[in-house]
Simulated assay, not measured.
Amino acid sequence: MEHFFAPVNGIRLHCVSEGAADAPLMLFVHGFPEFWYAWKSQLEEFGKDHRAVAFDLRGHNLSDKPEGVAAYRHKPLLEDLKQLIEHLQAGKEDKSCILVAHDWGGAIAWTFAAAYPQYVNKLVIINAPHTVPFARALASDPVQQEASNYMLLLRHAKAERVLQANNYERLLKMFSRTADGHCALTDDEIPLYLEAWARPGALTCALNLYRASPLYPPTPEDPGAAALKLDCAALTVRVPTLVIWGEADTALGTVLLEGLEEVVPDLRIRRIAEGSHWVIHEQPRRVSAAIREFLQEGNTAPAEKA
């Protein structure tokens, strides 16, 4: 795998690529609390016939770490992604890529695909809610509100202290909320994650994603997502989209799939009952097979698959 830094939006993003430079671009966007390594299996698989690239989001691992909550709002995150695609596709008339994203990366990718469809040939989202159904569930669904209460801790000023305690014990426990109760990370991978989290400023930057977002459950003092007035037309994703969903996700319920076709008209959903929020770690071959099938099909959306 090739490691390099891409200059975009006034910062440098650390990237890792597999495959020929002139092959079609496939870009992978990680979530919280991860870094490029989350996509190791997919880089190996899709590097066979694509230029598969994963990168560290701003603030994460080896990428630059702008300070302040405002640097992690959606506009700079979208601009990072736009300029990264332009950098990777330099010299090509068609700038579009296949965009694959999980968790927070998915939140960014949903909005990006709606705003810049010309940059996205096909979209793959893994356990990441679209803004519209997520805001609706956070405002009115008690089960999802309860499942999302962790977001209030991650927004709090004490979050760094809590998550760093006992060598990041609480962050590691997040990876044990799997379908079978075993940690989604191997013994060899845990030190890599600990190293990424311990980089100066990295944890605060990652938490600033939550602090900058208006999507969080309501409290008696703060209406949170219930106060949002969303423009559904501006958030509609019109590119062919595959959503892969580990149904054993304890943080994001399947209620977030309800009504999704209203804002994603060209939609396929692949549910994985034996997968949790960490399905890309638990079922990497199954995830890659679902993506591969999606890439090989035409643009007519089939019925939802179990």
Rank of each mutant, 00 (worst) to 15 (best):
A179D: 05
V120K: 07
A202N: 13
G10W: 12
K95C: 10
E293C: 10
H281C: 12
P191L: 10
T111F: 03
A70Q: 11
K158L: 05
L207I: 03
P214G: 13
H14F: 01
S213V: 11
Y210V: 08
Q164T: 11
A184L: 13
G19R: 06
L215A: 08
Q118N: 01
Y193D: 00
G10I: 10
G59L: 01
Q118C: 00
A196I: 13
E189T: 06
Q118S: 03
A71I: 13
I190L: 10
L171H: 11
S17I: 12
L230M: 02
P217M: 06
A6P: 12
W104P: 02
E297Y: 04
L207V: 08
W197I: 00
E262S: 04
A225L: 10
Y168G: 08
A301D: 13
L215S: 05
L267D: 11
K40C: 01
K229Y: 00
Q296R: 11
P200L: 07
K92L: 14
Q89S: 15
D94R: 14
H102N: 10
A38D: 01
E169S: 14
H74R: 14
R177N: 13
I126L: 14
L62T: 01
A226Y: 11
K48A: 05
N299Y: 09
K158H: 00
F134M: 01
Q83P: 06
E258W: 02
G298N: 09
V120M: 11
A23P: 02
H156K: 11
I190R: 15
P284Y: 07
I126P: 12
D188G: 15
T178D: 00
W36T: 07
G224I: 06
M26Q: 10
L25W: 03
L88W: 09
A23T: 04
L242G: 07
G10K: 15
V162T: 06
M174E: 06
A251D: 11
G253P: 13
R199V: 06
N149G: 14
V255I: 04
L154E: 05
P265Y: 01
E34L: 11
F112N: 08
H14V: 03
D187R: 14
I98A: 05
G275D: 05
N299V: 02
F55V: 01
